[in-house]
Computed example of a mutant assay.
Amino acid sequence: MDAIKLVIADDHSMIREGLKQLLELEGQFKVIAEASDGVECLEILSKEAPDVLLLDINMPNKNGLDVLKELNQSGNRKVKVLVLTVHNEVEYLIKAVELGVDGYVLKDSESSELKKAIMTILNGETYIQPDLIPMLNAKMISMENDYDKIDSLTKRELDVLKNLAIGMYNKEIATKLEISERTVKNHVSNIFKKIGVSDRTQAAVFAIRNNLIDIHN
């Protein structure tokens, strides 16, 4: 049986070397290339055809999530992608899942878990490190609750919330939306009740968390 071909993308050379030695020890895996940043990783993948990409999230030039996004946009993603990271924050995991990652494992996991993850995703299944799953489930439930809250808002209330979230006062919102200031005040009160917040700051956080506004513009 031919060895499973791997590419390792990580900006720390010691980690790449350690993974290479660990995985090649028994002859089951073969590291065919290494990348120290996201750009180099994409260049390698344009020339090589590995079975699995071991992908770190924090890398210079392009991070791991950017690499995953570009692989998806190419429309011809054949490689299985296993994120191998120090990040146990659920936001990174959620984003990776949204981008269609095949597996997600923390760097401090046992070598047996890493190998199991590789074999699982090669069999067409998704592998999320088991102790991360409760955190993922809890976050998904929270997100579903937020979706319900957003759906409860009228189009006008949504417009008010978006403008409130970028720091506009009631008078400014009224002028922009061509409605009375009293109407805006009533909308704000209804918004607070529907999304379960008590002030404008919490409402703004809710809007940002749910990508209702683009904070980069």
Rank of each mutant, 00 (worst) to 15 (best):
L99E: 04
V101S: 07
D102P: 08
D146R: 11
A35D: 07
L132P: 03
L93V: 15
H87G: 02
I179M: 15
H12S: 02
M59L: 10
N145R: 15
D10W: 04
E70S: 10
D10L: 09
V101R: 06
K155A: 13
L71A: 12
Q129F: 03
G100L: 12
L99C: 07
H187W: 04
G124C: 11
V39G: 01
S142Q: 14
A9Y: 08
Q129G: 02
N145Y: 10
E157M: 10
G167I: 02
M135W: 02
S109D: 00
I44D: 04
S74Q: 13
G167T: 03
S74E: 14
N170L: 00
Q28H: 10
S189N: 13
D37K: 05
V105N: 02
I150M: 13
D102Y: 04
R200K: 12
S109V: 12
I195L: 04
Y92H: 15
M1N: 07
F29Y: 15
D51R: 06
E91F: 08
Q73L: 15
I94M: 13
E26F: 00
N72Q: 13
N61M: 13
L106I: 09
S142E: 14
K139T: 05
L164R: 00
M1F: 06
I32Q: 01
E24C: 07
P130E: 08
Y169K: 14
K193Q: 14
K78R: 15
I166L: 11
I213G: 02
E172K: 10
S46G: 07
L136P: 01
L54P: 06
R16Y: 06
E34M: 14
I208Q: 08
S109W: 01
E17L: 13
K139C: 01
L19N: 05
V90L: 09
S142K: 10
V205C: 03
N170K: 09
S46M: 08
E113P: 03
L136V: 06
K47A: 10
D151M: 14
G196D: 11
N137K: 14
L42S: 07
T201V: 15
N58D: 14
I44E: 03
M59N: 07
Q21I: 12
L42D: 05
A204T: 05
I195D: 03
K155W: 08
S189R: 15
D108P: 00
I166G: 02
N163T: 01
E70D: 15
M140A: 10
N211D: 12
